[in-house]
Amino acid sequence: MKKVTIAVLFLLSFLFVFASLDLAPTSDLNSPPSTHVSPRYIEMGYKETGALNMVTAVLADYRGYDTLGETTVIFTAGLACLLIIESRRKPKR
C-alpha cells in the first residue's frame, strides 16, 4: 500500500514540475497576477479609501463583501464546534 502510494506521488511530482513551467517565474515584474488588478490597488488605494496600508484597503474596502463572507465562515465554525461538542445524544426510545 505504502509503496503504491509513493509511486503514485512520484509520478504526480513530475506532473507538478511540468505544470509549474507554465507559470511565471518567481519575482517576475510582468507576471499576470502583478499586471491585472494590483496596479489599480497600489495607485488608487490611498486616494479612494484613505488607508495607507494597501492590504487593509483591499481587505476591508474593495473586497469588503468577501471579508464579510470570511467572518461569517469563522463565526459559523465556532458555532458548529459548540454544537458538535455540547450536544447530548438523544435517549433511545
Binding site: 490597488y41 497600489i42 488605494g45 490611498y46 494597501m54 492590504v55 484597503a57 483591499v58 473586497r63 470570511e70
Partner: peptide, 25 residues
Amino acid sequence: PVLFGEELGTVAAYANPLPHTLMLT
C-alpha cells in the same frame, strides 16, 4: 505594500497586495 508617507512611488516598488489579503483570511 504599505505607503510610508503619502507620496506614491512606482507600482513596481510595492509587492502585490492581493495575495497577502486573500491568504490573511
